[in-house]
Amino acid sequence: MTVRVALIGNPNVGKSVIFNNLVPGARQHVGNWPGKTVEKKTGKYRYKGEEYELVDLPGCYSLTARAVDELVSRTYILEEKPDVVVDIVDASNVERNLYLTLLLMELETNIVVALNQMDVAKSKGYTIRTEALASRLGVPVVETIATQKVGMEKLKAAIENAAKSPKPASLTYPSDIEDLIEKLVTILSADASLVTHHPARWLAIKLIERDKEVLEMIQETTLDSKIEEVFA
């Protein structure tokens, strides 16, 4: 069976370079400006006898799409549900990059974080304790320097591992928010078809954030009034 892997991350972090490194013969265009890749591109590689289908996605800052290219990424992650999501994080810009990581973790899928551009991070005076980061996030973190092909074997191994592992839990938010989420999850779980398609916890978070698409989804169900109580 083919393992489906998606490369996602903020714009200009090095996704396409990593794609080219992993997929033999791939020639995705690379450029130093946000928004270089505008279309999803698929390629294959083999690792330990297993076949992997890798998708290079356009960069995005969050999963609330504003441009056509970002929409491609959002749709892919939400609808196609890849087996493993590789979140490429620019180590020299971790603070903002981790924001997307948190959003991805809310989806409760198998995630591997690639801390790319470690060379740039170092020259900026950043020291990152990767293991500590991995344990705080609860997902594997691999250091890479894509342009020098550093860390690619480790990344492949981490992907292989993640594909076989149970899905990690989302991060726990402060208890006041968790209370709200829990309440909504209880209400949402009443609609079985809704929560089989998307994780209930994710739907709850999006409801709190008043995400347009999720609000529309809910309007089609009978849960509307119960949910409104939580917001009243």
Partner: peptide, 10 residues
């Protein structure tokens, strides 16, 4: 939408 994007950007 703009507000959200600004917040997403940090």
């Amino acid at each position: 939408a703009v507000k959200r994007r600004i917040a997403d950007m940090g």
